[in-house]
Design a binder for these strands. Structure first.
Length: 565
RNA sequence: GCGCCCGUAGCUCAGCUGGAUAGAGCGUUGGACUCCGACUCCAAAGGCCGCAGAUUCGAAUUCUGUCGGGCGUACCA
């Protein structure tokens, strides 16, 4: 057990003290005896009501048939003192509130300082193997803005899960087989011939891909091979073009993602599932399990058995597998062939239909569907000149990832795409993003870090250094702004725990802003240089711990922590 | 039609398993640098939490209905 979650510890302690206070009062006959649940403890919104609060007395009003405030007063008078808390009080309708004491503040700073970059780690993952699959864009063209959000989200989520004690593998699933890929090959072929023999020489496939990138691929092929494919057998030519284009696109995607600091452990190819027979193997098992039946010449999956609205085709009447069949085989591979304990699929919300379908597939194979989780994020609403820009990959109207990075920094993109709840629509105002000024909170957070760095440096030149955590007299840090900053530092482990539990890495960008705010307030209200030396050094130590936490979380999110700006 | 997601301040969004006077940023208004970085801070104004019921001592939060927006509902992926 990694012990660095001081808030959690204080909450548990208070919960225990309240329960014991009740039992003691019940023993003495001051309150009637009854079964009790573990008292809930939370951090009140308004710090005037203390640092921690329990609504236990309110919830006991009914069973005890007594005014909640009265119950609270009796419990508090029976509660033992504890070193973590300086005092208890009863407020409002009957909340039991506790104020954190010097010992708690000291332990926060000592822990954060001693653990340094490891501060905030948790072990709720217990070393389980978890795969996070994200982006998985079709390799039929460049990635767009939606992929950027998915990329940042999946990557940040992976980092959060690592901090929470999981062994994480990042995976990109490459759809390099099937209809869309064939169509892509034909599109390149058409452009190739058109570029050599004129626009009207060859019909462009219906529903083909119109993006400029297709023309670029064709031009590359001409540059390298001239017209040598012109008289080739069409099927063979399409295969060549397809393979060339897909390979090239994957290289481009890999490079684009790398610019965003997204690196994968595995690029998993759909085609490999066909080649090694796993798709057939999976379908055979489904058949053997009695999950399939024949109708209209196709093979159907009994999805309705698992809560799906209707059954789905697994093998088409032309003998080809549907994507659904391949998806089931792929997820079977994740669990059974590679032994992941947990799999998280990060999808755009337009894929939400996959949730029940994939889970149904797992159930039909006898795999516990609760091991498969989904993170759905709403697509990005791109705004330009105050209007939504509609995008379509097939018509070639896209803002690509690399376009985006040409305009704004990686730091801003990573921060921005990770600053909204997954299922909220994310409005991306291009005009605002392009401005690249301090409207973006990433600069606010980075400024806090830079400010501390230069201050530490400047004061060190004047011979003033931070005191060591264990030598710091915490009593010297008693200003409101100082306590608020320490409390914010103490929140990190809890934020990481919740971000991992709920798959919400955006919590950490929000946390960074709150921490920076607490620091900036502290900086404005509390002087260091002019203070008495021991106090000054204690305050510097607090600054140094703040710097360390800022840099720690920024690096976890792969956002730079500049020492000066 | 059916299913999923979202409706909170002028705008963009928080609000944890129900709790105290619903918060933040931007914007607006007014203040704060002879000072360790003003890319900062402090304060004010601004809300029938889409609407209507229900449960509860207590609802932005749970349930039902309803209106508005997005998405899905192919032998496409």
């Amino acid at each position: 057990m990694i012990k660095n979650n001081m808030y959690s510890e204080a909450k548990q302690t208070l919960s225990r003290l309240v329960a014991e206070g009740y039992l003691s009062a019940a023993e003495k006959g001051e309150l009637s005896k009854t079964e009790i649940a573990e008292p809930a403890v939370e951090v009140p919104k308004d710090s005037r009501f203390g640092d921690l609060s329990s609504n236990f007395a309110l919830s006991m009003a009914k069973p005890l048939r007594m005014a909640p405030r009265k119950i609270a007063e009796i419990i508090v008078s029976n509660m033992k003192r504890n070193a973590l808390f300086s005092s208890y009080s009863v407020d409002g309708p009957g909340f039991i509130n506790a104020f954190l004491g010097p010992e708690w503040y000291a332990s926060v700073l000592e822990t954060a300082s001693a653990m340094s970059d490891r501060y905030g780690y948790d072990d709720i993952g217990k070393g389980q193997k978890v795969m996070v699959e994200f982006v998985s864009a079709n390799p039929t063209g460049p990635m767009h803005l939606g992929n950027a959000r998915g990329g940042v989200l999946g990557d940040s989520l992976s980092s959060v899960l690592e901090r929470a004690g999981y062994r994480v593998s990042r995976e990109f699933y490459v759809n390099d087989a099937g209809n869309q890929v064939d169509l892509y090959g034909k599109s390149v072929e058409a452009r190739y011939i058109q570029q050599l023999k004129g626009e009207d020489s060859f019909p462009f496939p219906e529903n083909g891909y119109h993006g400029d990138d297709i023309k670029e691929r064709a031009a590359e092929l001409i540059a390298e091979h001239g017209d040598e494919y012109l008289n080739m057998d069409a099927e063979k030519r399409q295969k060549l073009m397809r393979e060339y284009g897909i390979k090239k696109n994957i290289e481009l995607m890999r490079a684009d993602l790398a610019r965003y600091k997204v690196e994968y452990d595995t690029w998993f190819y759909e085609s490999s599932l066909h080649e090694n027979g796993e798709v057939k193997e999976t379908v055979d098992i489904l058949k053997k399990n009695g999950m399939l039946y024949e109708k209209d010449g196709a093979l159907w999956f009994k999805g309705t058995l698992f809560g799906m609205e209707k059954d789905e085709v697994i093998v088409k009447s032309n003998g080809f597998y549907t994507y659904y069949a391949v998806d089931i085989a792929y997820h079977r591979n994740k669990f059974l062939k590679r032994g992941f304990d947990k799999v998280v699929d990060v999808f755009g919300a337009d894929h939400h239909g996959h949730v029940i379908r994939f889970k149904a597939g797992m159930q039909a194979l006898g795999i516990d569907p609760s091991k498969l989780d989904f993170v759905l994020y709403q697509l990005v609403d791109l705004q330009r000149n105050g209007e939504s820009v509609r995008m379509s990959k097939r018509t070639g109207k896209v803002i690509t990832l690399s376009n985006l990075l040409d305009e704004i920094s990686v730091d801003a993109v990573r921060f921005f795409f990770n600053s909204r709840q997954n299922e909220s629509h994310l409005e991306f105002d291009l005009d605002l993003a392009v401005k690249e000024d301090s409207d973006n909170p990433v600069y606010y957070v980075q400024y806090a870090h830079a400010r501390i760095c230069t201050m530490l440096k400047k004061l060190a030149e004047a011979g003033l250094f931070p005191s060591k955590a264990e030598e710091t007299d915490i009593g010297l840090l008693s200003e409101q702004a100082e306590k608020a900053l320490i409390k914010q530092i103490a929140m990190l482990p809890e934020e990481i725990r919740l971000a991992a539990r709920d798959y919400e890495p955006f919590r950490l960008t929000r946390y960074l802003v709150e921490l920076a705010t607490a620091f900036h307030s502290f900086y404005t209200e509390v002087r260091i240089k002019d203070a008495e030396e021991k106090t000054a050094r204690a305050r510097l130590m607090l600054c140094d711990v703040t710097r360390s936490v800022l840099s720690n979380v920024l690096s976890m999110l792969k956002i730079s922590a500049p020492e000066q700006m």
